[in-house]
């Protein structure tokens, strides 16, 4: 009764073995590839230069030839931490502006899932970064953690304002040059018109120029040098 026909079962067993083997292989390979991909997703932000500088200052290595590690003054370390906080503020602003756009694009399916993953990872890293900065600040000066980001925020905003103002100031010289040229051109043109007008009026009385105020002005005051000034004064 219990005499199992092993030979007859061989085929189905082999079939099952092959089937599970395939599944297992597929799933491990697939998962490994997926993990590899997500680990290799490009980070949202480039390298954090300010953070690298700050940490490099804390880990200064002795110069070649000398054994002593150079001593970095605390004031420099504080300045470097503040620079790091300023860069964090810039990144937070970027994340906040990107968030709404990103999520709506994701909902519409316009962007892939990996972009969203990259974004979420950046957000999480940013949180850790902020916590780290606050801790470092409190370690350097007690109580600084509460205000470092306020200061950093103003530094970032002031930078934006000053850059914009500098950009506008930079146009000043070229604008002036342009205006000098333009004024010279207007002046010569005006002189020419005046000359034409005086020629015309000397040959025949002007009848057609009644609808052109500039020419009328010119004919009424034939003294040429006062022409442009008058025109300017009129405005």
């Amino acid at each position: 009764m219990f005499d199992i026909n092993w030979r007859g079962l061989l085929l189905p067993l082999a079939y099952l073995a092959v089937l599970t083997g395939t599944f297992v292989t597929f799933s491990t390979v697939y998962r490994r590839r997926k993990a590899f991909q997500s680990a290799n997703l490009a980070p949202w932000f480039g390298p954090h230069l300010q953070r690298n500088i700050y940490l490099s200052l804390l880990h200064m290595e002795p110069e070649e030839g000398s054994e002593k590690t150079p001593k970095v003054p605390d004031s420099v370390v504080r300045a470097a931490l503040l620079r790091r906080a300023v860069e964090d503020i810039n990144r937070i602003i970027q994340i906040r502006t990107a968030k709404a756009a990103c999520s709506s694009l994701l909902q519409r399916g316009s962007v892939g899932d990996d972009l969203w993953q990259r974004f979420q990872r950046a957000e999480k890293e940013m949180e850790d970064e902020l916590r780290d900065v606050v801790m470092e600040a409190n370690a350097l000066v007690p109580g600084w953690g509460q205000i470092i980001f306020q200061s950093a925020n103003e530094i970032a905003a002031n930078k934006v304002l000053r850059d914009r103002l500098e950009e506008i100031e930079a146009q000043r010289e070229s604008e002036k040059e342009w205006w000098e040229k333009r004024r010279a051109a207007i002046r010569t043109e005006f002189m020419k018109e005046l000359d034409n007008e005086s020629e015309k009026s000397s040959t025949r009385p002007s009848t057609s120029s009644a609808d052109e105020p500039v020419l009328v002005d010119g004919s009424s005051t034939p003294s040429t040098p006062s022409g442009p000034k008058q025109r300017k004064g009129k405005k």
Partner: peptide, 12 residues
């Protein structure tokens, strides 16, 4: 910013 525990040492 790859990882919170790592940084790139810049020779300064």
């Amino acid at each position: 910013m790859s990882d919170q525990d790592h940084f790139t040492l810049i020779p300064l």
